[in-house]
Amino acid sequence: MNSLSTRARLAVTAVAALALAGVAIGYTSLSASPEPDIQSGTVTGPRLQVLSNGKLSTVSWNDPSGPREVTGQRCDRAYSAGGTTACLRPVSALKAGELAVLDSSSRETRTVPLTGFPNRTRVSGSGRMVAWTLFVDGHSYAANGFSTSTGILDTRTGTLVQSLEEFTSTVDGRPVQAVDRNYWGVTFAADDNRFYATMSTGGHRYLVEGDFAARTVKALADNVECPSLSPDGRRIAYKAAVNGDPQQGWRLSTLDLATMEVTPLAETRSVDDQPTWLDDDTIAYGMQRSDGVNDVWAVPADATGSPSVLVREANSPAPL
């Protein structure tokens, strides 16, 4: 166990809860945008889930720029799959954040209290496994000295892993127990046991493959952040730091897990998001405008074509 374990770090953060609450209002005001001019309506058929100014919403898969159903469910980040929705609820001046697990009828089935600023969440294809990442210290992956907490919940058995730092990690077959380890951006394989994530340590940001039952993670590749596994399980979409330096921004790329071949995509702007596969051919992601408003963009997964806006004034895309 690290001398500065996640449990200890979270305890320190909990002691500072009043300070966290005090900055929450300012943080929210910076991250929120004006209420978007959204055409409301009923959405039928295949759908895409997004957040509209922090509210859980759906749009038509065939007409994502058309009317959208906007609920009252507020999330800083959200993702849905297999009839399960993970909603990372915002930190407020009166309440710390939490993970809310919702069923296909939007009924709350479980909540997990969390300390930190919500940043990433994912659900396995079956809806069984839920993961999340919080910033415990700092608010950017480009900054020095940030600290994250990443956990996983098995909704079927109730098994809760508060931090991946509890798992045994290896790089090139050697155990890694450094106190600077951080994990973020989990994505699940189809078997609900294997997963991928980012681990940073010693100045490197690795793609790691995890085994939930065995409680192990092993490094597979360097300079891979916020991975997202393709529906066919063959490729990882991710953000790669330009020249290995996050302060220079990130480039969306894909990694073939069989050959380890890297393919930079046609999106050449810096993307600080965990991409989402809409299908085996298309990747979606959030981009923030200069005025602070987010849009969901899409780009082909084979480096052809060009990026285009998929859903305006939205983020956290998830195909339903």
Rank of each mutant, 00 (worst) to 15 (best):
M1R: 08
S3F: 14
S3E: 15
R7G: 12
R7F: 08
V12K: 09
T13I: 07
A14D: 07
A16F: 04
A19Y: 11
G22R: 11
V23Q: 11
Y27H: 09
T28V: 10
L30C: 10
A32Q: 13
S40F: 08
S40K: 14
G41A: 01
R47K: 15
V50Y: 01
V50E: 06
S52Q: 11
N53P: 04
K55F: 15
S60V: 06
P64H: 07
S65W: 02
R68H: 02
R68E: 04
G72Q: 12
C75N: 08
R77V: 11
A78V: 06
A78Y: 00
T84H: 01
T84N: 03
P90N: 10
L94K: 14
L94F: 15
K95L: 09
S106Q: 15
R107C: 02
R110T: 03
T111R: 15
P113C: 01
L114S: 03
F117C: 06
V123H: 02
V123K: 00
M129E: 00
W132H: 13
W132P: 00
L134N: 07
L134C: 05
L134A: 05
D137E: 15
S140D: 13
N144W: 04
F146V: 08
T148I: 03
G151L: 00
D154L: 06
R156N: 15
R156H: 14
T159F: 12
L160M: 10
Q162T: 13
L164A: 06
E165W: 00
E166D: 14
F167R: 05
F167M: 09
T168M: 05
S169V: 13
D172C: 04
R174K: 12
R174I: 08
R174V: 14
V176H: 08
R181T: 07
T187G: 08
A190S: 14
D191Y: 02
F195L: 14
M199W: 04
S200C: 04
S200R: 13
G202W: 01
R205M: 11
Y206I: 03
Y206M: 05
E209R: 08
A213M: 10
A214G: 13
T216Q: 08
V217Y: 01
L220S: 08
N223H: 05
P227N: 11
R234H: 12
R234E: 07
A237V: 06
A241T: 06
G244L: 06
D245R: 08
Q247V: 15
S253N: 07
L255E: 00
A258E: 12
T259P: 05
V262Q: 13
L265C: 00
A266C: 04
T268M: 03
R269C: 07
V271I: 15
L278T: 05
D281I: 02
D281M: 04
Y285A: 07
M287T: 14
R289D: 09
S290L: 11
V293I: 09
N294M: 10
N294T: 14
V296A: 04
T304Q: 13
T304D: 07
T304S: 15
S306W: 06
P317F: 05
